[in-house]
Structure formats: structure tokens, C-alpha cells
């Protein structure tokens, strides 16, 4: 079984990739991003506010995503994030890196592709 620390380091390594990936189709706000990750991973990867927002702000500072406020009548205003051109490039790069890495690990650790 994976221990919590193993999971934690894996999660750290893939966090940016996961977040960027959720913004591929359309802009979302933080809660939405976290919910989607949880859903698509079938509950295996859960981001709480404390884990998600530092990543969001870091990506924003890097220029991979950009955020803006959206006002909807009757509702609290929310901050939405979208991928920038640089962000898209980064997403593609990270996807590639991870696939290559995972393939290598599979071969090296004798994992069967399930």
C-alpha cells in the first residue's frame, strides 16, 4: 500500500500538472478545479484549500495562468483562472515528461500496465 508520505511526494510532483490540466478546456475557479480533480481521480487525489491555493498563486506568478474577478448578480464574486499561452506550453511539456518518466519507472520497477 502507498504510505501517506509517498502519496504526498507524488502529489507534490504532479500538482501543477493536475491544476493546469483542469483549465485546458475552460476557465474555472478554485473550488471547481479542486472538485474536478477529486472527481476525475475517483477520490484518490484530494486538494484542500491549503494545498490548492499556493499552487494557483505560484502558477499565476509564473505566468502560466491568469486570474480575474467575475461578478454575477446576486452572488459573491469569484476569481476565475485561465491558461495562458505559456501555460499551455507548460502543460504539454509536463504531460510529456510525466509519460516518459512513468514509462521508465514501469520498465524499471517491473510494473505491468494495468
Amino acid at each position: 500500500m502507498n504510505t501517506p508520505t509517498d502519496e504526498h511526494s507524488l502529489k507534490k510532483g504532479t500538482a501543477e500538472l493536475l491544476v493546469l490540466a483542469q483549465l485546458e478546456d475552460e476557465p474555472r475557479h478554485g473550488y471547481d478545479i479542486a472538485t474536478r480533480i477529486e472527481q476525475r481521480s475517483h477520490g484518490a487525489v484530494v486538494f484542500n484549500v491549503a494545498s490548492l491555493y499556493p499552487i494557483l498563486y505560484r502558477l499565476e506568478a509564473q505566468g502560466s495562468i491568469s486570474g480575474w474577478w467575475v461578478e454575477r448578480a446576486g452572488q459573491r464574486r469569484r476569481r476565475f483562472y485561465k491558461l495562458t499561452a505559456a501555460g499551455r506550453k507548460k502543460l504539454t511539456q509536463q504531460r510529456e515528461t510525466w509519460s516518459v518518466f512513468m514509462a521508465a519507472v514501469q520498465r524499471a520497477a517491473g510494473l505491468e500496465y494495468a
Partner: peptide, 15 residues
């Protein structure tokens, strides 16, 4: 959602 505000603050600051 924020188990430790001090580490959260640290992360925010560096981010």
C-alpha cells in the same frame, strides 16, 4: 480546509 494556517501562510508567502 486549512489544517495549519502557519504553514498555509508560509506557502502563500513563497507562492
Amino acid at each position: 480546509q486549512v489544517p495549519s494556517w502557519s504553514s498555509f501562510a508560509r506557502e502563500l508567502a513563497s507562492a
